[in-house]
Design a protein around this nucleic acid. Structure first.
Lengths: 331, 331
DNA sequence: CACCCGGGCTGAAACGTTTCAGAACATGAT
DNA sequence: ATCATGTTCTGAAACGTTTCAGCCCGGGTG
């Protein structure tokens, strides 16, 4: 593997000069510079980032750990974060915990060992051994899609209680009184908050709420929940799902059983992923600014790792209800 | 930041011993080992991977560059690759080129500078300046979802010509004679091959083929193509799309216009992503073993970077047609 | 003429590990 | 007592960069 030494020897200069050509071209004379550059080209020299980082003490990459890459919501978070990172010349490496704590721990350890500039983190839980160990490593981090007190760390999140309430009010306003909620794993704060918001909205009304626990936040969990919904009697007239993947699964179960949506069963999802609007019965959904979430989190992290250490912040975005066919009132 | 030296001083041993505790615990006496370990715990020491890599000369991470993380097909490829990599104790870092050559080039350069163990690559094109520069860097790589001659590099792909033919034959057998093909960017070999397969299947029949060029391989491109399809006269009775995202877009356009699927328009997609089966009119699709693709590619790369350098191979999987409602013949 | 200045370059130290030759010591065999 | 044999540990070199003090030299200033 060709190193800076080989280039120096071939070009007849010292290694310091080669380094200068690469990193501070203006301090070297034009003639020398072009000679060195052509040798670099000739030999196919590629700088060794680990040596550079060892010496420089700081890395040019930022880590991003997401809960589930299979959820298009998180793919948008990735896109937003990449945008902000690239604007600062940093690269993002994305890892997928799949909601498994042991994988989360392993990736956090990797990030710490790599001495990445910082980590954007959508964790399974905001406490726990792995997270504690990571915190001790001193690697800066920002929570994404999860609110924590600003005293602990910066965070960027969406108000899930408000989102749940949006869905609840909408279902009340469209005349529903028997409402089901398909919830995901209770360990996820998102799930707990959305349920809380829904309960807040329904409180004081005559509506009756049934909560169905699903195993996961994916399509097949939604299908299972849909099947259970079909067996209920009296059957709810509307269902709110903790995310769009579940909602798509429920929709599929309904269509498969010949239950008309929204006439016999209204459906509200959460996240407003692209597939929600593209479903053959387009889904009403609570939209979260996913890209913005990723971008803001990356910006916060960049600010935190800059020389002027600003205060930590807890940024909270407000969700928005997008009404589509799946809850449209038909006359 | 606490280093191996601090641990050594605190535990009253040499740095060599600390290193041995971490890397070859069996060579150090039990008493010393446990003393060092407790100091490591106490000080929160985390090994610096860049120093380790600099010295060791080899990295413990593998790069994966995909065309589009927004496509669930590639998310499954990622999952498969992660599985194989973790089995060998390697970590995967995933990057998303979004089909943009300049991003692809930037990530390839990053991989080379990081001296990753190797790269799994689903490139925009199998030639070009960026790829050439990367090749010169000597970083091992394996193509994913793209076949190249084994003399150049190993590759793992699915026979797209066969896949296109599967779709074509199926549409002929279900009685269609006016068939449309929604194609993606012609720069992608996948798109060219699927079209070729379709043409092969239709050759010799009386069927008439219309090709609609779409801008991208995403849902909104599919919607556009669907709108164009609706304006055609005579309108085709079936459409084959280069991937499922497009097919979902076409489906949405049909439903929006009140055109019944499959009675007035049959639809076949490609990839068999989860959303295809979960669509309210479940899509017939050509299934690719995405996870297997990722896993096999990672295994090939691992083999190639092992001591016993095996021969390069071009593994080709065979696609499979999954028939669902969107092409079901109704009597 | 002496002096300083600044541009252009060199040489060496430092970053935090891993690895390896060998030191130090204990054990058992001769 | 001497020697071979382990076992456990040490010290230093090496990995490929970046950075910095300082050298050399030509030209302007007093």
């Amino acid at each position: 593997m060709v190193g800076i030494k080989d280039v120096a020897k071939r070009a007849g200069v010292s290694i310091g000069t080669v380094s200068n050509v690469v990193n501070r071209p203006h301090v070297v004379a034009a003639a020398t510079r072009s000679r060195v550059l052509s040798v670099i080209e000739e030999l196919g020299y590629v700088r060794d980032e680990s040596a550079r980082q060892l010496r420089a003490g700081r890395s040019r990459v930022m880590g991003l750990l997401v809960l589930d890459l299979g959820n298009p919501f998180f793919v948008d978070v990735v896109r937003g974060a990449e945008q902000a990172a690239h604007a600062e010349g940093l690269n993002i490496i994305t890892c997928n915990s799949g909601q498994r704590s042991e994988l989360e721990a392993s990736y956090l350890a990797m990030f710490a060992e790599q001495r990445v500039r910082g980590v954007l983190l959508s964790p399974v839980a905001t406490s726990g051994a792995a997270l504690g160990a990571f915190r001790r490593s001193g690697t800066p981090y920002v929570f994404v899609d999860r609110k924590v007190p600003a005293s602990e760390a910066s965070s960027v999140s969406v108000d899930d209680v408000a989102g749940g309430a949006l869905a609840g009010r909408h279902l009340l306003e469209t005349g529903h009184r028997r409402i089901a909620f398909v919830n995901g794993p209770a360990i996820l704060a998102q799930c707990r908050d959305r349920e809380q918001g829904l309960r807040n909205a329904l409180a004081g009304s005559t509506a009756e709420l049934t909560v169905l626990e699903a195993i996961g936040l994916d399509v097949s969990s939604g299908r299972d929940a849909g099947a259970r919904l079909l067996g209920m009697s009296p059957r709810p007239t509307a269902v709110f799902c903790a995310n769009d993947l579940q909602a798509l699964g429920v929709l599929q179960a309904m269509v498969g059983a010949g239950v008309r949506v929204p006439d016999e069963m209204a459906i509200v999802g959460y996240d407003d992923i692209e597939f929600a609007g593209a479903a053959a019965v387009p889904l009403t959904s609570v939209r979260q600014p996913a890209r913005r979430l990723g971008r803001t989190a990356a910006e916060l992290l960049l600010a935190e790792t800059s020389d002027t250490k600003p205060e930590r912040r807890a940024v909270v975005f407000t969700p928005e209800l997008v009404v589509r066919e799946s809850t449209r009132v038909r006359r």
